[in-house]
């Protein structure tokens, strides 16, 4: 009787282990699709791809920095539905100035904006996801992959109801301004604010855009006080021959503060007077 009980416990334990393994996959990162749409601050509807990351491992931002590879998400949606590029939340800054990377530890929620088919009143949709990532821990990196179907409820919930979504607006507050300087000689984007505006620790992290070279490297570019203004000067070069899909835009994130919950803004600027051949 005692042996039988022990055996049952062993079988239960083995089953529990196998179930866990099937859910998490073999690697240090697991990906899944949140089973309901999320409503963004702008009213958009989003499929949420959720990653859980083992301690000490990390995933990468859309611009991984000096090394790394950002996760990729391909979704197959019902006829008439469309998906946009994933939105990466505010990343953490890793490494040193010689090997700077941007990414996420513990968890990551990627938002994929979707548009419903006209007149579609289904309460849920079938989604097939193909998700790939590279994750690293110290000097060790491994690839991971999730392929599979998911059922997503179209009864969207507010984005604040999700655990760690850190969306950011593209509209800057009135206290922060952007200007281009020296476009003929030494193109520079200047992001500035009044020193009295109380914007602490303003930093810019550049996104990777074909045709734009950030001359001060991977960043982050840090604001410096100049008189009554605090400003980030971001020198860059434009290489139109390297651009793809039209004229390059200057993109990145403007971070304030040091916490994930501090204000973050998306910078996405057209360059003045891009030649007609690039348009």
């Amino acid at each position: 009787m005692i042996i039988s009980r022990a055996m049952r416990l062993a079988v239960y334990g083995a089953c529990a282990f196998l179930t866990l393994a099937a859910t998490r996959g073999a690697g240090p990162v697991a990906a899944s699709i949140v089973p309901h749409l999320a409503v963004g601050h702008d009213g958009s509807h989003n499929i949420v791809v959720r990653f859980t990351i083992d301690p000490q491992w990390h995933l990468y931002w859309s611009n991984p920095g000096d090394s790394g590879i950002a996760p990729t998400v391909k979704l197959t949606l019902p006829a008439g539905w469309t998906a946009s590029e994933p939105i990466f939340p505010r990343p953490q800054v890793f490494g040193t100035s010689k090997d700077r990377t941007y990414g996420y530890s513990s968890s990551l929620d990627l938002l994929v904006p979707v548009t419903a088919a006209a007149g579609d009143t289904a309460t849920s949709i079938a989604v097939t996801a193909s998700i790939e990532w590279m994750t690293c821990k110290g000097s060790v990196c491994v690839f991971g992959k999730f392929d599979g179907p998911a059922q997503v409820s179209t009864q969207a919930v507010p984005i604040a109801g999700l655990s760690i979504v850190r969306a950011y607006p593209s509209k800057l507050p009135p206290s922060i301004s952007t200007t281009f300087e020296g476009m003929l000689t030494a193109p520079t984007l200047v992001i500035s604010a009044a020193a009295s505006a109380g914007i602490e620790g303003m930093r810019f992290i550049p996104d990777s855009v074909a045709g734009i070279e950030f001359l001060d490297g991977t960043g982050p570019m840090i604001a410096k006080i100049s008189g009554e203004r605090v400003a980030i000067r971001i020198p860059f070069a434009v290489h139109l021959a390297d651009a793809v899909d039209g004229p390059p835009r200057l993109r990145g994130l403007l971070l304030t503060g040091s916490k994930d919950s501090d204000s973050t803004y998306r910078i996405d600027l057209a360059l003045p007077d891009v030649p007609a051949k690039a348009k």
């Binding site: 000096d66 790394g68 590879i69 990377t101 000097s139 990777s208 074909a210 290489h239 651009a243 793809v244």
Partner: peptide
């Protein structure tokens, strides 16, 4: 292009 974004392990 003469330059593209390199990606991979550091």
């Amino acid at each position: 292009p003469a330059t593209t974004k390199n990606k991979g392990c550091g």
